[in-house]
Design a protein around this nucleic acid. Structure first.
Length: 106
DNA sequence: GCTTTGACACTAA
DNA sequence: CTTAGTGCCAAAG
């Protein structure tokens, strides 16, 4: 089982996020899976380090259980952005279920 | 090169 | 529903 290249890892995460259409969200698990590894945490770590908030829609990444998860600027800000994207969020939780999770088919 | 940290995931009770 | 415990990967110290 080939491990993901450290250099590519961060770039992979950002690139995948760019693929997420507005109004949809993805989970750290899906991203990690798309990268071919289970480093759910490493994904968030890369985003937190990059935090290219405008260059990359990091706010579209949520937890697998439906919580919005965290955000470098604050979860409240993350929720606000999701609402602007059209994703209904309530009490730090995605109002809709199942999540409008975007699949990285390609 | 090992230890700690972190925007997580999953199972059991 | 909540709490506790374990596993996961990469970056930073």
């Amino acid at each position: 089982m080939k491990k993901c290249d450290p250099k590519d890892f961060e770039e992979r995460c950002l690139e995948l996020l760019l693929k997420i259409p507005i109004g949809k969200v993805t989970t750290y698990k899906e991203i990690a899976h798309a990268l071919g590894c289970r480093g759910y945490r490493a994904v968030g770590q890369s985003l937190n380090r990059n935090k290219k908030l405008i260059s990359v829609p990091c706010h579209r990444v949520v937890k697998s259980n439906g919580e919005v998860g965290g955000y470098a600027l604050g979860k409240n800000e993350k929720i606000g952005l999701l609402l602007q994207e059209g994703v209904l969020v309530d009490g730090g939780r995605i109002s809709k279920w199942p999540l409008p999770m975007h699949r990285f088919s390609d």
